[in-house]
Amino acid sequence: MDKQDLLADYRTMLLIRSFEEHCQQQYTRARIGGFLHLYVGQEAVAVGAIGALKPQDHLVTHYRDHGHALARGLDPQPLMAELFGRQTGTSKGKGGSMHFADDAKHFWGGYAIVGAHLLLAVGIAYGIQYKREVLGQDDDGVVMCFFGDGATNGGEFYEAISLAALYKLPIVFLCENNEFAMGTPLSVHTAVTEIHKKASPFMPGERINGNDVVEVREKASAAIEHARSGQGPYFIEAMTYRLRGHSAADPQMYRTREDIAARRSNDPIELLKQKLLDEGLLDNKKAKKIESEVEKEVEAAVKFAEESPAPELSEAWDDIYAQPL
């Protein structure tokens, strides 16, 4: 395992948090449309797990994808431009919040049909195996696939874990259990609330503390090593909590302000900050400096998005096919 740079992780977590707060503001000002699923409160999962991936590895996720994109090192400017529906966006303004992607970084995108992208991730992993075994390429990539607890009840979930196990594919399934599927609590949507147990007949797995970036990094590294060494898939259930609504338009009738307040003591960013202060890796002055740097970076992203042109109308007809006939 490469050594974890906790200060860098702290910075990335702050970047995600700040990006999301700005998104909320811009949504309120109606500059961002559609569904906007914020990642506030879950930052340690993306930063810890994606930090354990290598450049040749692959990342697939669902619609709550901002944190995953930033953790994989995507530039906030084209991401914000995508949210504004601009030509300079990562998907030329045609995907929006739920469909961030970056080919060059093996970030295969956010997908918006719950549970479905697990199968695409399985296919990408199948591709790696095929390239190795049939084409003789020395591709040692691993796929990491993120999804929520709500994605583990439908058929596509079971087809995905079943195929991944059958072919011993190099893939890590990473369930972010934030205790809710939209407004439906965990115990209301599933009989097996320890989600990792659903996969246990097919592959090894475990439940981890998703609010501790150190634990996430360590467990994710081991899972990736397992998959890379040819032992097949691995399942991680990261326990976390979404501190904002399901989407920016969610009135959150299913929980109280007090419920949320009680969870703030487990805010992964505060936990990490305290650790860094305790260990003398950070002081208040340095913390302020990082915060203001991050803030500037996101403000620049908003400015970039504002100043970017909307797509030409002809863009609507582009990319339907790779090879139009």
């Binding site: 692959h58 295969w108 479905a116 697990l118 199968l119 695409l120 991730a121 399985v122 296919g123 990408i124 992993a125 199948y126 591709g127 790696i128 095929y130 390239k131 058929g155 596509e156 087809e159 995905a160 079943s162 195929l163 059958l166």
Partner: peptide, 18 residues
């Protein structure tokens, strides 16, 4: 296996991956 969504998705992912 008899998992039509499953192997359709597997095929799509493999196609995306070259």
């Amino acid at each position: 296996p008899i998992a039509e969504a499953g192997y359709a998705g597997l095929g799509i992912g493999a196609a995306m991956n070259g």
